[in-house]
Write a protein that binds this DNA or RNA. Structure first.
Lengths: 142, 142
DNA sequence: CTATATAATTGTATTATACAAATATTTTCC
DNA sequence: GGAAAATATTTGTATAATACAATTATATAG
């Protein structure tokens, strides 16, 4: 299957990724960086989890997530809950303060998206949202 | 303007970025990494350019691009052309070998996209390509 | 109960990045 | 025309996110 839109998706994804990673890698949006945002978002959405599960979800090394979670715990955005059935294991839950910065950050991000798409029709925004979701679901398991 | 699709775009973009950066940051696709791919792509598409212009295009620090370009020169994918009108300035042009690895890498990326969207209709691929392009154009100048 | 497996943390190295300093050259302007 | 300022690039240094390896503490298997 050749399809000129494959080529378009390839190029535009590359550009999108470059721009967004440049805008969010080093710099903070709100008071937290991208990895912190995703960690808080994951826990806020799916509940408390241990570093192993989080690392698996994010496809990061456990040690990486361990440090990220420890940093967020240090800042008071997460707290550690010992697993009652396994003395080695902990899960991280989000705090009130963590939820607050997550919401603030989400709002800032949504404002950026609103600004970027301010000349779009509602249908275009809807299509982009749905196609990105479909893309992410199509990728699952890869 | 509140729009539930803003929220959907926000979340799905975050997931997309996390997945793609994890898949391309550290690891190579083909024989070059993401930053090398973008640099070669830029030069192949728009012609020879100096580090200042490239850094501006990528919104990276000049020193960062200088090192990236030097690394690609070292590997034989780029070569340096002194600016005849300015003894301080150089531009980088892509070599045959650079073009070859760029094409190979692009093909690998397109194969991944083809695989990811194998159950999509042609119209969905077209819409995603066009909306990503529109997004990237909407972002210009931000 | 000992050996092995596992959850998490900590040590170490690498890499992409930014900012600052250095170098070489060009432009400005008196 | 020459000194001062500006500019293009490279190189030095620091930081942060990451992976892999080693360690620690606990659990499970045989």
């Amino acid at each position: 299957m050749y399809d000129k839109y494959l080529e378009m998706i390839e190029l535009e994804l590359a550009i999108l990724i470059r721009r967004i990673t440049n805008a969010t890698n080093r710099k903070l949006i709100g008071v937290i960086d991208r990895s912190a945002y995703l960690l808080l978002h994951q826990i806020a959405t799916y509940g408390a989890a241990g570093v192993k599960a989080l690392a698996s979800e994010f496809q990061l090394d456990i040690s990486t997530v361990s440090r990220q979670a420890a940093a967020l715990e240090q800042k008071g955005y997460l707290y550690k809950i010992p697993d009652p059935t396994d003395g080695r294991a902990y899960s991280f839950q989000i705090t009130e303060s963590g939820l607050k910065v997550l919401m603030e950050t989400k709002q800032i991000r949504m404002n950026i998206i609103e600004e970027t798409t301010k000349d779009w029709t509602p249908e275009e925004r809807e299509m982009l949202g749905k196609l990105l979701r479909k893309w992410n679901q199509s990728v699952i398991g890869k």
